[in-house]
Amino acid sequence: MTLLLVLGAALVILALVLVSASLGTTAGGQAMTGVDRSVALVQALTNSPKELTKEYDEPFADRVMKPLQEKASKLARRLSGGDAPERIRKRLDVAGNPPGWTVERVQAGKTIGAIALFLVAGLLSTAMGMSFTIKILFVVCATLVGWFAPNLYLYQKVYERSLIMQRDLPDAIDLMTISVESGLAFDAAVQQVARNTEGPLADEFSRVLREMQIGQGRAAALRALAERTEVEDVKSFVTSMVQADSFGIPIANVLRIQSSEMRTKRRQRAEEKAQKVPVKMTVPLIFCILPSLFIVVLGPAAIHIMDSFKGI
């Protein structure tokens, strides 16, 4: 019994010695706990020069995401060709330059999207136990989707923006006509449209005014407007305005004719869409409505006939 007590006391002393050794001692011989070391580390970082802590003060986007974006953009530039940045820049102009979208970000998004979907498709195909051929096709299709996803987004933005500009152009020309006939110059009429309307067309007219204010000619600013859009009505309007400015034709007469033509075209487009409705309804009518109608109408008769045959 005494031997066990002595052995227990020795083990306790040994444990205390090990704990003291693991915590360590300061230069003055006093023990430093884990909290003290953390406080000392924070004080050392706080009192250190700015050059040493500059790397830790930068946000995560600048330290990690920006270098990753630059590398992905370089890789996309090599895979896309030398004229890819110019094509993307033109597409961004036509799409209205969405906030946060630049040429470098689009190229980086193409690379990152392709790599991400490649890895996800590989993991999913492996987890689902696909055959080798189907796995290759699935991974290739997913990679292509990731690569072309930014382009598809830009094309969708261009399409939506073009529809809005095409819809708002007749009203904008009417406002210009009223402004010019009331005595304002063409530039002031454009300013009225940019100030009193909203949407992509107003933004484009505001850009035309800014370009003219910095010294660009009216014809050059209007031609730049035509290059930044894919709406044929806007291009026709710009061509008419440039020719009227070149030959000295009264702007009010040209605007009145353009307004009448734009409204006629808009009515014709509405009639064309109305004529297409019966054709578009044929497919859901045949494959969705008629089968359900046949089931409701002929179903009870079919059940009655089957019961009659069973009775026989």
Rank of each mutant, 00 (worst) to 15 (best):
L23C: 12
D57C: 10
L154H: 03
A15W: 03
D233F: 00
A270C: 10
P250K: 06
N47D: 06
M1R: 15
T239N: 12
K50A: 11
E58Q: 13
G311N: 14
M65W: 10
I173A: 11
A44F: 10
M212S: 06
Q192R: 04
G81W: 00
Q258Y: 01
V145S: 12
R218T: 03
N97H: 09
R63H: 04
M281A: 03
Q43L: 02
Q268T: 07
S259W: 02
A127V: 12
A61H: 12
P49I: 03
V238P: 02
V277S: 10
I251E: 15
I289F: 13
F309M: 10
E271V: 04
S260D: 15
Y159S: 13
A224L: 10
T177C: 05
L41D: 13
L225Y: 02
Y159L: 12
L255M: 13
P49N: 01
G217A: 08
V277F: 08
F247H: 14
L68I: 05
L7I: 07
F118H: 06
K54S: 15
G146E: 09
F287Y: 03
R78A: 04
E227H: 12
A127I: 07
F247Q: 10
A189G: 12
G96L: 02
T2K: 14
V139A: 09
L137C: 08
